[in-house]
């Protein structure tokens, strides 16, 4: 039952993702992005990864998208911009589609080729924190350094320069 729920949620996420990248209006695209992220969160819950689902909702669909919303408020939403965006998409979608096809083909072939070895152990392994702050502690430190660098970079890029 939960398998079906997971597949259903992931399929919805894929559909929403396709809509998100093809809408000409930025607000619509953003709403589809939120929908895709939320349905992915549902998929995570169905897979038994409650922590990841909660984080997906809180941080991804909450915090990160909120930042997007602030920026989108500054974007141009006039009918001309909409038409221009539509024209651009109609004009140049073939080459990217071909390239994506090239990427997707070996992915699909790999799925067909790889055997499905039954390795499903019960989900009672060590807790997530023990992994993150035990053997992966260095990676967590590096990631925190990345966040700090991003913070400083955003601060630097966002500062107001004096007009010459």
């Amino acid at each position: 039952m939960s398998d079906l729920a997971a597949i259903w949620c992931a399929s919805v996420a894929l559909a929403c993702a396709i809509l998100a990248v093809t809408r000409p209006a930025i607000v619509h695209a953003l709403i589809w992005l939120v929908a895709a992220l939320l349905s992915l969160a549902g998929c995570f819950f169905a897979l038994g990864a409650g922590f990841a689902g909660a984080v997906q909702i809180l941080i991804y669909a909450g915090a990160i998208v909120a930042v997007f919303v602030f920026v989108v408020m500054t974007a141009d939403a006039s009918p001309e911009a909409l038409a221009r965006e539509r024209a651009r998409l109609a004009q140049g979608w073939r080459r990217p589609a071909a390239a994506v096809g090239l990427v997707a083909l070996p992915l699909a072939l790999g799925l067909l080729a790889g055997g499905t070895s039954p390795a499903a152990a019960p989900d009672s392994g060590p807790s997530l924190g023990a992994i993150l702050f035990g053997p992966w502690a260095v990676a967590v430190e590096v990631a925190s350094g990345l966040l700090l660098a991003a913070l400083m970079g955003a601060r630097h890029l966002g500062r107001r320069r004096e007009e010459p």
């Binding site: 992931a10 399929s11 993702a17 930025i26 965006e85 651009r88 589609a97």
Partner: peptide, 25 residues
């Protein structure tokens, strides 16, 4: 199936990255 769907989501994003010209998209 889940792996295929995740590959699909990735490919969709990749397509959008190459097909769209506006930075926000």
């Amino acid at each position: 199936i889940l792996l295929a769907l995740s590959g699909g989501i990735f490919a969709t994003g990749f397509f959008g990255l190459m097909a769209r010209r506006a930075i926000l998209f």
